[in-house]
Design a protein around this nucleic acid. Structure first.
Lengths: 346, 346
DNA sequence: ATGAAAGCGCTAACAA
DNA sequence: TTGTTAGCGCTTTCAT
């Protein structure tokens, strides 16, 4: 081990102690605003701290405290408003506790599991989005770190989510019952994420409940706006537009919404479109997007609370129902489904 | 200090040593694939490691190694394709070095400086986006951590960026010279970020070079799609559309592009629109967006390389010119400016 | 080939 | 009020 020649960069607590002519314990007390230090010594120590521009090493503290004051968030990717809002929700509770957040996007990582493990090593808790890492790894992590799964569910791991299946069935039923559509298609990759899987299931359930079949295979595209634009082109080229397109999320829907008109298809006259999430864009698009409102920010906040709290939080398996983890969604009817502006239906 | 009762969770190197009947040094050697351990003991140790599911604490290692194998990225926010791409670029070099990335969004943090300091404490290097924290704090950080400023410039801090001023002047000149527009307005908050400041300066420079005045104050909106949609509404309500709108980035432009037609304004016939960045959306919008291509992924990669390397990298102040930090942009002419499809002009 | 021990930066129980 | 010291988990020299 290096013998610390003189001052290779950052001053340590010992440098300050020596400089101020006190013990390291006293320096520690000063950095902690411990009231038991004489105002006099405190001043002397503070002076040394300022002069050497000392700040306690988070690493050393973490090792001693046995906690890092860090919350990790694992998401598939970092793009898009959904994840930004999720992080925002988590930040809000993290800030309140003086905890800093570390975000990891697995899509960019060839070995997601290894990256998550490394992250777990440096955090007090972990928020993990559904579909990012395998269930068994999730369970394994949950044994050594506080883990909360968001938008997903796995055995033995606390979770927070919404009931996407029911919500998707509702919005699909609206299209069928209120607007009389019969030929509907789903847009999104059903096996892509647990969220999408659920929504697709709800879509099919509503169809079945009305004695309908899908008007075709799901249109398998990514969950971003560009994918929606591409889907629009492909759909136009195929020549056969259905009555309505139920999209896996808002961004996809917006991509369609912004591109189809340019190709000669009017919305909702020629084809109705619905989204999912109710992100900022939904309200601003034209026509405004009919979608399902999800409390994304709160999802993030709850997950953070769960991942940070020592209290036994969300042990849904223990006492049967644990409704606090299942947040409510609401159907938001606007105009892209065919309803008139200001009109409300359900 | 707690006396570590028995096994409160994670096993430590000492647990393994005891379990395998060896010293901690030997365990350490095994976890490092040190060839000097008998295959026999190695097996015994490995067995204990597997059985107890032991993995070395990153914290302990970091403290001993004096490096964390972590790269920090500080951005204003996490939304949008620009930052996603920047992170992608940084990830690519981080992955290659077995380094993990920590992302921090300052917009959500009331005390950004404190959060960045805390992050600096846990990383070997920091990539900081221009406009996130004050210059003096930047300089201060640069004294104790490797810092690279991306999309910005500050005294005493290595940086990587593009020449946004020149690029903005070029695209503005195109609008004036090729399309004969005279009444142009800038969309974006000039004081919002160094990037936007530069682009606005370029816009004004081009105007001045052609003896023109701005057709009005900059339209001060955020850099996201929803802001563009709002800008479109406001502009429509004001009744006075200019010949062309030069937007601070693609998202803003896309918001305008997607909303103005619904309000009765044709693009580019009634008003021409240009973006900046050349994100995926630009190619897919209709009309396709004329914009400035920026090598964002490479910007992120270079920044990461700089923040991680020990080699003296980008010391632009030392030897005068350091062109390697100034990446080239290219003008991408599509149709939103008024050019015909497939047409190229400059 | 293996172990003992010092040290990384900090905290906190215990003494003085 | 202040100091001494053991310990957090790990690495690494130096002995053996």
């Amino acid at each position: 081990m290096a013998k610390r020649p003189t001052n290779p960069g950052k001053p340590t607590i010992r440098d300050i102690a020596r400089e101020a002519g006190v013990s390291v314990a006293t320096v520690s007390r000063v950095t902690h605003d411990d009231p038991r230090v004489t105002v006099d010594t405190k001043l002397r120590v503070q002076e040394a701290i300022d002069r050497l521009d000392y700040r306690p090493s988070a690493l050393g503290r973490a090792l001693s405290y046995q906690r890092t004051n860090t919350l990790g968030i694992v998401l598939p990717g970092l793009g898009g408003p959904y994840f930004a809002q999720l992080i925002e929700g988590a930040e809000s509770v993290a800030v309140a506790r003086g905890v800093v957040i570390n975000v990891l996007g697995t899509h960019l990582r060839p070995d997601a599991v290894a990256a998550v493990r490394q992250l777990a090593e440096r955090t007090d808790g972990l928020i993990i989005a559904g579909g990012t890492i395998p269930d068994d790894e999730l369970a394994r992590l949950a044994r050594t770190v506080r883990v909360v799964l968001v938008a997903g569910e796995a055995p033995g791991v606390p979770w927070v989510r919404t009931d996407g299946r029911t919500a998707a069935a509702e919005i699909t039923a609206h299209l069928i019952e209120t607007h009389g559509h019969r030929r509907l298609r789903f847009v999104g990759e059903p096996t892509g994420s647990p969220d999408t899987t659920e929504r697709y299931a709800g879509f099919r359930a509503a169809l079945a409940a009305h004695g309908l079949e899908e008007a075709g295979e799901p249109l398998r595209y990514g969950l971003d706006v560009p994918s929606g634009a591409v889907a629009a082109r492909d759909l136009d080229r195929s020549g056969a537009l259905p009555d309505a397109l139920v999209c896996a999320n808002d961004e996809l829907a917006i991509g369609l919404l912004a591109t189809l008109p340019g190709l000669g298809h009017r919305i909702p006259a020629d084809v109705a479109i619905t989204g999912f999430d109710d992100t900022a864009l939904a309200e601003l698009a034209s026509p405004r997007l009919t979608t399902v409102h999800q409390p994304i920010v709160e999802l993030g906040a709850r997950a953070a609370a769960g991942a940070l709290d020592d209290a036994a939080w969300g042990e849904p398996l223990a006492d049967g129902a644990a409704p606090v983890n299942l947040l409510a969604t609401t159907l938001v009817i606007r105009e892209s489904c065919g309803c008139a502006a200001e009109g409300v239906a359900g």
